[in-house]
Design a protein around this nucleic acid. Structure first.
Lengths: 238, 238
DNA sequence: CATTTCACCTGACTC
DNA sequence: TGAGTCAGGTGAAAT
């Protein structure tokens, strides 16, 4: 990745390469990227790299008698150099180390999903360099579509960007319409109670395809598509 | 309501009428009467009637330099003259004013539910009278069922207690089932992918009725009913 | 023990 | 749009 070129404080920052030392990866769970707004740091890595005990300060982060109670503010840089500040602390109730405040923003910006990997590194070299922390992430391998999931989540953060999902069934009863694909279930009502929905769909037997491409805003879990309100619910893993 | 009869400190308290001045009402949310054990006071009323700033002491409550940090102890009387003492403070993180300690006892004794109204008044007249605070409440009006709502909420807190809703339509496509009533839309999958759902429903034309009575736990938005996972979405007002 | 209280946090929504 | 409000949450501490 980055070449080990020595840097001086006066060098052009855009030309400074940073030598990194990999600390650990975590394959994030649904909870890590869900509404709990926290990332559990596996205890072995937490105690090695982000110690909260005053005794065992071995360079990963500052620590003091109070940090065991209050946690730390950890500052990371992502691959673009953007700073990310997270609160990092220990939850006695679950006896686990967690990143809380700031984490949900990272999940949202990167579009992290369950099964993706986050990667933690630090600068290599002298103690000052080793206090510089880096965070990166990679998408999980594409999964084969799951059929017949056995449950739904009531709501979930939709990924940013284009969302394309071929729907495999569509139903209507009165003014209430439902469609489902391998990834989403959608409910909607037509814009006028007496009018048919204006979605470009082909209702009928299972197997029909409906592929609207929707660009989501940053906040809404509800879409307005062709004048129709849509609500999404996500199948859960088996 | 109460007649403006002058009172003296020596009069029989049961014969003293109090002239009240209405301050504000709040229609309580599910959270206000739930396990959070707090009542959010809308900021406009909080700052007008229960100021915590030393500068703006205009009679609603005492204030001092420390009260902004520690909050106040507010003493109210209910319609029966019973005293209620609440801790009132400001939460920096959510920038909101809240009544905390003592509130859950009031909710419990009065049987307050979401949608009910709490009403805050104070004595009318001289500054001493205006420092007397009163709290009252009223039950919400029973709600008429809404037909053909135009949108859905992705999730919502289900009411506590028995939930009976006659369903007016039911749909199935593959293993995905939907039903709707005037109040709820429900999605579910059968317990086994190959088996039909075991709900006591009569699928077919609109107009059929399905009336399971479900007693909800205090937290879950998901139900397991007859071995079937159900997810609810609530129609929104027009 | 469970329940209540407390000081935070976040997202949905409004303007 | 960005800032403010607040409903609905959290873990931890107090009771």
């Amino acid at each position: 990745m980055e070449k080990p070129v020595p840097s001086s404080p006066s060098a052009d920052p855009s030309l400074v390469f940073v030598v990194k030392e990999h600390m650990f990866d975590k394959v994030v769970t649904p909870s890590d990227v869900g509404k709990l707004n926290r990332l559990v740091i596996p205890k072995q890595y937490a105690e090695k790299y982000f110690p909260l005990d005053p005794e065992s300060d071995q360079g990963g982060a500052a620590s003091s008698p109070e940090t065991k109670k209050l946690g730390l503010l950890l500052s990371f840089e992502d691959r673009g150099g953007k700073p990310w500040r997270f609160r990092y602390s220990y939850w006695n109730s679950s006896q686990s180390y967690v990143i809380t405040k700031g984490w949900s923003r990272f999940v949202k910006e990167k579009g992290l999903g369950a099964g993706d990997t986050v990667s933690f590194s630090r600068g290599s070299g002298n103690p000052a360099a080793r206090r510089r922390l880096f965070i990166d992430w990679k998408r999980r391998q594409p999964q084969p579509p799951r059929h017949h999931p056995r449950g739904f989540a009531n709501s979930f953060p939709l990924p940013r960007g284009p969302l394309t999902s071929p729907f495999t069934s569509i139903m209507a009863c009165g003014h209430h319409w439902c469609a489902r694909s391998a990834l989403y279930n959608v409910n909607w009502l037509p814009p006028a109670a007496a009018a048919p929905p204006k979605l470009e769909v082909h209702p009928g037997a299972p197997g029909v395809t409906m592929s609207p491409t929707v660009t989501l805003g940053s906040r809404s879990k509800r879409l307005r598509l062709f004048g129709v309100n849509l609500d999404f619910s996500e199948p859960l893993p088996e």
